[in-house]
């Protein structure tokens, strides 16, 4: 099938590439761009392992055509580390055993990142509701739940100490 030139904005970089019109965003990320963080799980829009953010909103890259995502901001798990170090939520997942086999983790990262960006202090219900679109076959949901709460707490303490430092000056 004839390839067409498309422009994608991924993790803050604008890329031009030739791609078939029927190619899914997940395949472009993994095969053409080497961004293999996003995973193919169920391949029928159920599991959330392929979750990326489109204009900041988490969506399934296995159910999106790459060519449909032009002019939008795409963010993958490769883009959520902060200045080369792990984001707070990535660190908390490591500390609390939120990642077991690790296959679903990148998808969860994108979902949780959106949750905390939108609402830095979500209730337990909000967290459960937000996580209800991603599946973990290791069933490590409780560890993730704890990791998320720990990340929220760390963030809150961080903000408090920042405020203190600012106050001391």
């Amino acid at each position: 099938m004839k390839k067409e030139l498309i422009t994608l904005k991924i993790n803050g970089r604008t890329l031009e590439l030739a791609s078939e019109p029927n190619k899914l965003l997940l395949d472009v990320l993994r095969q053409d761009l080497g961004l293999t963080g996003s995973k193919r799980g169920c391949d029928d829009s159920s599991c959330g392992a392929c979750t990326v953010q489109l204009d900041g909103v988490p969506v399934l890259s296995c159910t999106l055509l790459a060519a449909s995502c032009q002019e939008r901001e795409i963010a993958t798990v490769e883009g959520i580390a902060e200045h080369g170090s792990l984001a707070a939520i990535q660190k908390a997942y490591g500390d609390w055993g939120g990642a077991q086999c690790g296959y679903c983790t990148p998808g969860f990262m994108m979902t949780v990142d959106h949750l905390l960006t939108e609402n830095p202090n979500p209730s337990e219900d909000d967290i459960r509701h937000a996580l209800s679109g991603n599946l973990c076959r290791c069933t490590g949901y409780m560890q993730m739940f704890q990791a998320i709460k720990a990340a929220i707490e760390a963030e809150r303490k961080g903000r408090a100490s920042e405020a203190q430092t600012a106050g001391a000056r």
Binding site: S45, G48, T51, V57, P58, V59, L60, T63, L64, T111, H129, A130, S132, G133, N134
Partner: peptide, 9 residues
Amino acid sequence: VASPLLRNM
């Protein structure tokens, strides 16, 4: 409907 991710789409 479905899940939060699918409702975003």
